[in-house]
């Protein structure tokens, strides 16, 4: 069934139609939230909140943009709200609790996972807008134009913001950069 028709049915109050949309996008929303929080429980709660907010706002959705873009906008705002509310809690605490010594000891099968943990921990130290753009581009694999639509910015701004975010991440990861070179 065409997505636009499903959305229109859901707008008329058809819960099953909304259920189809939930099934279609629940993993994407969960992965987005997980990419930002790195915590399964929190990501699941956030994904549920995203769909509740979408359900509430659905009658106002005018189908001018793609449903997925609209849903991602809601998701980004929900995640931002979550971080604002949780600002007292240190963001890094949501991440893997492995000790620094363990993380820098990259031997064996888990090497990639540990490197990944290290990168994600450092993404958590970046400002919110940089975390968002890195999650959308480097974790979710969204194109520049999709990101531009979701964040309501120009593709040029996506390019420059992404560059600044990556540069900053490289800077905060300075002590571990040797681990990401071929000879490591």
């Amino acid at each position: 069934m065409e997505e636009e028709k499903i959305v229109q049915s859901a707008q008329k109050g058809d819960k099953d139609a909304f259920g189809i949309l939930v099934e279609r996008y629940r993993n994407k929303m969960f992965y987005l939230a997980y990419g930002m929080t790195n915590n399964r429980e929190t990501a699941d709660d956030l994904a549920q909140d995203i769909f509740i907010k979408a359900y509430r706002a659905l009658p106002r959705f005018n189908l001018e943009s793609k449903f997925s873009t609209w849903l991602y906008r809601i998701a980004i705002n929900t995640i931002k709200d979550f971080f604002r509310k949780e600002s007292g809690i240190e963001k890094v605490s949501l991440h893997d609790h492995t000790g620094i010594e363990d993380r820098v000891n990259f031997n064996g099968e888990n090497e990639k996972q540990r490197k990944l943990g290290l990168i994600k921990e450092n993404i958590g130290k970046l400002p919110e807008k940089h975390r968002i753009i890195l999650t959308l581009r480097d974790i979710q694999g969204k194109s520049y134009s999709e990101i531009a639509e979701i964040l309501n910015i120009s593709p040029g701004t996506v390019d420059s913001r992404l560059f600044r975010a990556r540069k900053k991440l490289r800077k905060v990861m300075a002590p571990y950069l040797s681990l990401f070179r071929r000879e490591s």
Binding site: G19, V22, E23, R26, N27, F30, Y31, Y34, G35, R40, E41, A43, D44, A47, Q48, K112, K115, L116, I119, K120, L134, D138, I139, G141, R166, L169, R170, M173, F180
Partner: peptide, 18 residues
């Protein structure tokens, strides 16, 4: 750095979402 990020394997979301 960014190659590894793209290869991330996500955990399964909790069951019975809907």
């Amino acid at each position: 750095i960014f190659g590894i990020l793209g290869e991330q394997v996500f955990p399964e979301s909790k069951p019975y979402f809907w």
